[in-house]
C-alpha cells in the first residue's frame, strides 16, 4: 500500500483570526436579564419560605447573611451576563460561519456550510418582546457539534436562514 506523508504547508490557508466580527443585538441583554430575574425572584422567595417554616432559622442575622449571599450571587450573575455579551459575536465567510462566545471560558466554533444539515430560527416570549431571534445550525454531529447564535435581529435571522438553506441546496446540487 502506498502511503504518502507530506508536511503540511499552511501558507495561503485563510485564517479565522482575521475575520470581521459582528456583535449580537443589545436586546439580548434585556432578554437574558429579564429571563434570569424571574428565576432569581423564585430563589429569593423559596429561601424566605424555608427560613419562615424551619424553626430556628427565623433570625435577623441569618436572614441578613442569606440575603447578602444571594444578592452578591445575583449581582455577579447579571454582571457576568453583561460581560459575556460583550464577547458574543459571529462572522459569516464564503464557506463557513464562526461564532465566538464566553467571558471566563472563551470559545470560537466554526461550522462549514457543507456540513450543515438544516437550520432553524426561534424566539421565546421575551425574544419576541425585545425583537431578537436565535438561529441554530444542525450538523450530523449532534447537540455538541451544532451552533446556536442568539441575539439576532429578526430580519437578519430570517435572511441568514434563507441564505444558509440556499447555500446547502447549491452545495447539494454541486455534489
Amino acid at each position: 500500500m502506498n502511503f504518502e506523508n507530506t508536511g503540511i504547508s499552511l501558507d495561503g490557508i485563510p485564517s479565522a483570526e482575521e475575520v470581521q466580527w459582528r456583535p449580537v443585538e443589545p436586546g439580548l441583554k434585556k432578554v437574558k436579564l429579564y429571563g434570569w430575574a424571574i428565576w432569581w425572584v423564585i430563589i429569593f422567595m423559596v429561601s424566605a419560605a424555608v427560613m419562615f417554616f424551619i424553626p430556628g432559622l427565623m433570625q435577623i442575622n441569618i436572614g441578613m447573611a442569606v440575603f447578602a449571599v444571594l444578592a452578591t450571587l445575583c449581582w455577579f450573575h447579571s454582571f457576568s451576563i453583561g460581560k459575556s455579551l460583550m464577547y458574543k459575536a459571529f462572522s459569516i465567510r464564503e464557506h463557513d460561519i464562526l461564532y465566538r462566545t464566553g467571558w471566563i471560558f472563551r470559545s470560537i466554533k466554526a461550522i462549514p456550510f457543507n456540513r450543515v444539515q438544516h437550520c432553524s430560527v426561534s424566539a421565546g416570549v421575551l425574544g419576541r418582546k425585545f425583537e431578537v431571534r436565535s438561529i441554530r445550525l444542525f450538523t450530523s454531529g449532534g447537540f455538541a457539534a451544532d451552533v446556536l447564535i442568539p441575539g439576532l435581529n429578526p430580519q437578519t435571522a430570517t435572511d441568514l436562514q434563507e441564505w444558509i438553506l440556499n447555500k446547502i441546496h447549491q452545495d447539494g446540487r454541486a455534489d
Binding site: 464566553g102 471566563i104 471560558f105 472563551r106 470559545s107 470560537i108 466554533k109 466554526a110 461550522i111 462549514p112 456540513r115 450538523t139 450530523s140 454531529g141 457539534a145 451544532d146 451552533v147
Partner: peptide
C-alpha cells in the same frame, strides 16, 4: 470534520 471548536479557560488564556 463537521465543526471545530477552539476553547480557553482563564488558566489557558
Amino acid at each position: 470534520v463537521v465543526s471545530v471548536l477552539v476553547k480557553q479557560n482563564i488558566f489557558q488564556r
